[in-house]
């Protein structure tokens, strides 16, 4: 089955990101396809490489990056939501005159059209959030 994934909450504060990760991993392990993982609302905070959680806890951001690398996942951070919350890649930093970028490996910034397209392409759209 082809799954589209939407993550609507940030890491640590809320379980949605952990659950989405576990779901994606289990689906891939069973041979399903992940059309795209889209991060919206505070979910965009899953895509900052500047997090430094305690060493005895899971590193949610790195975990997504590693999964993306291993399975060539398409992980998209919504540009409008990212701008509000300070998730920036090199292009966005330049465009808005910021002095740094913080996007983590495996994430790319794009528009909401990518979410709708995932909904159209997927057999089932899974929403992780409240």
């Amino acid at each position: 089955m082809k799954f589209g994934i939407l993550v609507n909450e940030g890491p640590y504060q809320h379980q949605a990101s952990d659950t989405a990760y576990q779901f994606v991993k289990a689906a891939l392990d069973q041979g399903h396809e992940i059309v795209r993982v889209f991060f919206y609302h505070d979910g965009v905070n899953n895509g900052t490489r500047l997090t430094t959680p305690p060493q005895d806890d899971r590193n949610i951001v790195n975990r997504w990056s590693e999964l993306a690398k291993e399975h060539e996942l398409d992980m998209v951070v919504c540009v409008a939501a990212a701008q509000r919350r300070g998730i920036v890649d090199a292009d966005e930093a330049k465009r808005h005159g910021k002095d740094a970028d913080n996007i983590a490996d495996g994430f790319r910034i794009s528009g909401l059209g990518q979410l709708i397209e995932a909904g159209i392409k997927a057999d089932r759209m899974m929403i992780f959030g409240d």
Binding site: A80, L112, G113, L115, I116, E117
Partner: peptide
């Protein structure tokens, strides 16, 4: 905002 963007996809 999602609804408005989604409207362009003629669903």
């Amino acid at each position: 905002e999602t609804v408005l963007i989604g409207a362009a996809f003629e669903q």
